[in-house]
């Protein structure tokens, strides 16, 4: 089943929800707030959600986007779920490393690997 919402492409397979962020740049406050709200709604739909966030289209992110992800990660964990990130470009991954957020988030290279990790 595939559902298209603004800025997100959502697919659920084998109890894992995969959300592809479709914006190339996640920079401004308005966009980040919209994406954050949409992701929170997905997390609120099911306790213990197994969630993969796919960054394959994303080439730029701001610190506000990182903040939104931290809040999302907490929500997922509080609901007993698991969040795994994947397809993060090297420059964006560098931003995770600089801020030590690579130690906070589970990050996998590709979508299949991330989905397997989220399901485990």
């Amino acid at each position: 089943m595939e559902n298209l919402t603004p800025r997100l492409k959502v697919v659920t397979e084998n109890d894992v929800t995969v959300v592809e962020l479709t914006d190339r740049k996640i920079l401004d406050e308005m966009s980040i707030a919209q994406i954050g709200e949409a992701l929170s709604a997905i997390v609120a739909e099911a306790d213990g959600i197994r969630l993969v966030l796919d960054f394959i289209s994303v080439v730029h992110m701001s610190s506000s986007a990182l903040s939104m992800l931290i809040t999302l990660n907490k929500r997922v964990r509080q609901s007993g779920g698991r969040l795994v990130l994947c397809n993060i470009s090297p420059p964006i991954h560098e931003a995770f490393t600089i801020t030590r957020l690579n130690e906070v988030f589970e990050i996998r290279v590709g979508r299949d690997e991330a989905a397997a990790e989220a399901a485990s």
Partner: peptide, 14 residues
């Protein structure tokens, strides 16, 4: 680490 703020200046410096 898990506070959702304070990373902008660090990224600028990096």
């Amino acid at each position: 680490l898990e506070k959702p703020c304070g990373r902008g200046i660090m990224l600028m410096r990096a």
